[in-house]
Design a protein around this nucleic acid. Structure first.
Lengths: 330, 330
DNA sequence: TTGAAAGCGCTAACAT
DNA sequence: ATGTTAGCGCTTTCAA
């Protein structure tokens, strides 16, 4: 059911059908009408790839993140999707699980498909400028622009880590543990750096992020953490904090009486946990919107690459408390 | 940088380049080598749309659900993505927000792009058989096959609702409210039907699912619910239950002492809420995997449409309790 | 073993 | 106002 069938059904040429579709003003009203009817009649569906081959831009934008099921990334993707929808575009979401090989494979597929652009939270940013140079716009997500010749949307992760650290220090904590991943994604590593800067020294505890789930891994790490006797733990994100709370509860460790816990992201459940989780909030949905905005702007003639920066903010709840003086002095 | 450039760089014809790419065995080893080198040299990236125009299948599969940021759908999508990755395919995720117009627009885009197939949790299934007939395989997700000539992955939602209802009745509850959406998605409506069948009568409370968030809407509904004086509330999902717990806490209503609450989905946070949430679990990730499996099977010669069915299960925690006899009799 | 050529469905310049 | 035609990048006969 191509334009050919429509043309013959309407008794016109294919170019007239094409004109009705792209510049109806150029065609006689009666003809337009006839062609429209023929289109419905034969159930014509335009062939996207053929159009793209002729130079039309693809309506597809790729999003490459750690994990599309991660609530943070899911919310970011929704922000992207909504902004793209205004431009008639649609979102192809990919998970890398932080594996460079997967990331490379996905980027190759996206580039081959000739997507409108790629929004990526990269495991490895090295290959991105080449992709951009070959003609597929790339926007960095949750990643600073630095010297890269790309647009970027970033959150001040170092500040986020620092906020958590200062909060704990102000409450008297000195032995502070950091629950991270075996290999931290770059934004997480930056948070740790900020925390480090604020508290001087960190007791590192690492868990495997992937299998079977971050939450379970964090729960399993509870014992290890307790053995190190910190007075507070900062977790790489709320999901890890959730798991850790589970593990601590199983060990009979009271939060925050025995141990303060800080999360990151302020996911919807954070405020209703037992205890309510102190955490660092990021403007998640807005991150996505901003990234989509930057990407769509790439087609504008005068476009220049820029960075949009967001600030995290500390949300204090009841999973952190003042250090027990007795424990300090006794 | 098309095959033309590669061909001239390697001193061969385009068809030889094409052969090196698709049937290297046919080409002289020395030539293969030379062409491979030329490919790297010029930075050749195959043109997907052109290939597709020549008959290659698209590597893109579309997923159409209520909301890709919804944790349930996000997890389902991850299951789809992982299974697709094994086949070298990639996932385009779309949110309809239950709006038929949005759904139709998205389906049109997907069909025009000539995607490999569409996995959909439909707001309106009527247009799907036509799409399938025109050549784009469609798999129903979280939707029974019924008389439709399509593959489907379904959960026994009626059973899920019934499990919740029977649980509450067994604990003495008789005034049971149901917190639903102004317009329930079909699976949610089926759960309600199951609940209804188990408990005889339901006190309906409806909230607007969309803006600004389901959780907030559920929290706002707390007062309305309390006024109706049920002894238990079944929520359309865990996110709504989370919000409701918030609202109830603000009103000083104790759960489960004053009111029992049941969720749906068993999201990761459910077991760590205060109180831990009784809920109905669905095999989320597996739903996605099964849907992808069915879709990939559509290309197999002997394929026939079939339905894969999953069972939900009740997870009893501490947000539900026996009805207080004093309140009943006193 | 390699190359020439036709054509996938569409668009746009050009001719009528 | 409409039609003719060339060609987007690729695959695939078919011929050399």
């Amino acid at each position: 059911m191509g334009m050919r069938e429509v043309a013959s059904a309407a008794g016109v040429s294919v170019s007239t059908v094409a004109n009705v579709l792209s510049r109806p003003a150029i065609v006689a009203p009666a003809t337009v009408e006839r062609v429209r009817r023929a289109i419905d009649e034969v159930g014509y569906v335009p062939n996207g790839p053929a159009r793209q081959l002729r130079g039309r831009p693809s309506p597809i934008v790729g999003s490459v993140t750690l994990d599309l099921a991660n609530p943070f990334h899911a919310e970011v993707n929704r922000g992207i999707e909504d902004r793209l929808a205004e431009a008639g575009c649609v979102l192809l979401t990919c998970s890398t699980d932080l594996r460079p090989a997967t990331e490379t494979r996905l980027l190759r597929v996206l580039e081959q498909q000739g997507v409108r652009g790629i929004i990526i939270s990269p495991a490895d940013a090295a290959q991105l400028p080449a992709i951009s140079r070959r003609g597929t716009p790339v926007v960095l997500l949750d990643h600073p622009k630095e010297r890269l010749d790309l647009c970027a949307v970033a959150v001040d992760d170092v500040l986020g880590g620092r906020l958590a650290g200062e909060h704990l220090r102000a409450r008297g904590h000195r032995r502070i543990a950091y629950l991270g991943a075996t290999v931290d994604p770059a934004p997480v590593a930056r948070r740790r750096a900020g925390l480090r800067a604020a508290v001087g020294e960190i007791i590192d505890v690492r868990v495997d992020m992937h299998p079977p789930s971050l939450g379970a891994a964090a729960a399993a790490a509870a014992e290890r953490i307790v053995a190190l006797a910190p007075t507070a733990v900062v977790c790489l994100n709320d999901t890890a904090a959730l798991g850790l709370l589970d593990g601590l509860a199983a060990l009979g460790v009271r939060v925050p009486a025995d141990l303060s816990v800080v999360g990151y992201d302020d996911l919807p459940f954070a405020r209703r946990l037992a205890p309510a989780l102190t955490t660092v909030r990021q403007p998640t949905y807005q991150l996505g919107q901003a990234a989509a905005e930057l990407l769509l702007d790439e087609e504008r003639p005068g476009h220049t690459h820029r960075e949009v920066r967001f600030q995290p903010s500390l949300v204090v709840r009841s999973s952190t408390t003042y250090i027990d003086e007795h424990r300090l002095t006794g």
